[in-house]
Computed example of a mutant assay.
Amino acid sequence: MKITVIVADDHPIVREGLRAVLHSDDGVEVVGECGTGEEAVRLAAELRPNVVLMDLRMPGMGGTAATEQITAAGSAAVLVLTTYDTDSEITRAVAAGALGYLLKDGARHELAAAVRAAARGETVLAATVAAKLAVHVRRGRPELSPREREVLDAVARGLSNPDISRELYISEATVKSHVGRIFVKLDVNDRTAAVLTAIARGLIESPWE
């Protein structure tokens, strides 16, 4: 089964280029494209793709707001692809629910691999973005969304992704996306480290007390 993708970017030439790059991978199919955040939200709800490639700065609703709506609805995993790598842009996108953050000047051959990883619920970050995000996380207490706290609390209680999916009435893919974002925000690589770090920072209560 092919991984389905929507490309959201307000520049037609950029959309055409991304479509051409993804078309070269037999396992990926672009099922829609649009030039505004509003259209991205509508298409994601209508087509239910695996991944939305999201530009941040578009007319009307920006990419960050669109990302928040798409991920909150569980419509798709969002992979930001933009020219902006400022700390504020990165942290806002991650806080909105983006599972990945890539720069447009990155190697094009890496794009399909990033899309595949995002479809699996894995975090995908450009090296420079990962470094900046890690510094931001170390400087202060990360902000977890209410849903991310619910997921992390369930992880702390030993629930598996299927268990969390049933308990919170969300898809397993959405659970994976939340877990991936939690790992990014807490700067950890596994579930145990995420739970221990969150308890140490007062983000969740210990289930063992």
Score class of each variant (00 low, 15 high):
E89H: 13
E89N: 08
T91L: 02
T91C: 00
R92C: 06
A93K: 00
A93S: 06
V94T: 05
A95M: 05
A95H: 07
A95Q: 11
A96P: 10
G97P: 05
A98H: 01
A98W: 00
A98T: 03
A98Y: 02
L99F: 06
L99E: 08
L99T: 05
L99M: 10
L99S: 07
G100L: 14
G100F: 08
Y101E: 06
L102S: 11
L103N: 14
L103F: 11
L103T: 11
K104W: 12
D105K: 15
D105M: 12
G106L: 09
A107I: 07
R108W: 13
R108C: 05
H109K: 13
H109S: 15
H109D: 11
E110A: 14
L111A: 04
L111D: 00
L111N: 06
A112T: 12
A113I: 13
A113K: 11
A114P: 09
V115N: 14
V115I: 04
V115L: 15
A117G: 04
A117I: 02
A118M: 07
A119G: 13
A119K: 14
R120G: 02
E122W: 15
T123G: 11
T123S: 06
V124C: 12
L125V: 01
L125F: 04
A126Y: 13
A126C: 13
A127V: 08
T128F: 04
T128P: 05
T128V: 08
A130C: 07
A130N: 06
A130R: 11
A131T: 15
K132F: 08
K132G: 09
K132L: 14
L133E: 06
L133M: 09
A134P: 02
A134Y: 07
V135P: 00
V135M: 01
H136S: 09
